[in-house]
Simulated scan of single mutants.
Amino acid sequence: MTTASAGGRAKKQVSAEVRREQLVAAALRVMKKEGIAAATTRAICAEAGMPHGAFHYCFRSKRELYAALLSTDMNITFGEAWPTVVPTADPADSIRTLLRAYWSTVQEDPETQLVLSELVNLALREPELSELPRWEHRTYLEKVVSHIERYADEAHLELTVDVRALAEMVISALGGVVSSWLSHRDDAVALRTLDGFAAAFATLTRPRRAG
Rank of each mutant, 00 (worst) to 15 (best):
S15E: 07
M50W: 00
T41P: 00
G49H: 14
F78H: 07
D73T: 06
C45Y: 05
A25G: 11
R9K: 14
R63K: 15
R9C: 03
I36S: 01
H56A: 01
A54R: 05
A16W: 00
Q13F: 05
S71Q: 12
K33Y: 04
C58W: 04
K11F: 08
A67L: 11
G8D: 12
A38K: 11
I44R: 06
V24A: 10
T41K: 08
E17A: 15
S71K: 09
G49S: 14
V30S: 02
H52D: 15
C58I: 06
E47F: 01
A43S: 10
A6H: 12
M31N: 07
K11N: 11
V30P: 02
S61G: 07
A67N: 08
R42I: 06
A26N: 01
A37R: 06
L69P: 00
A68L: 01
A39P: 00
A10F: 03
Q13H: 13
S15Y: 07
Q22Y: 05
L23Y: 10
K11H: 14
E17W: 02
R9D: 11
R63P: 00
K62A: 04
L70C: 09
I44A: 04
S15K: 14
L69E: 13
A26V: 07
L69W: 01
P51W: 10
E64C: 11
I44G: 04
E47N: 09
Q13K: 15
A46W: 03
E21T: 04
S15L: 12
G35A: 08
C45T: 15
A43Q: 11
L65Q: 05
R60Y: 06
V14T: 15
D73K: 13
A67C: 03
F78D: 09
A16I: 11
A10G: 10
G7W: 07
S71I: 00
L23C: 05
A10C: 02
K33R: 15
V24R: 12
L23V: 00
T41I: 11
R63N: 05
K12W: 03
F78R: 09
A46M: 09
Q13C: 09
A37D: 10
L69K: 03
V18K: 14
G49Q: 14
F78M: 13
E21M: 01
P51Q: 13
Y57K: 14
L70R: 12
T72Q: 09
E47I: 02
A48H: 08
F78I: 12
A16C: 01
A39N: 01
V30M: 05
A10K: 12
Q22M: 13
A43D: 03
Q22F: 04
S61C: 09
M74C: 09
T41H: 05
R63W: 05
G53Y: 08
G53I: 08
H52A: 12
P51K: 14
M50Q: 13
T40G: 01
D73Y: 12
F78A: 14
M74F: 02
H56Y: 15
A10W: 03
G35N: 09
C45N: 01
A39V: 00
E47A: 08
A48W: 12
Y66T: 06
A37G: 02
L28C: 07
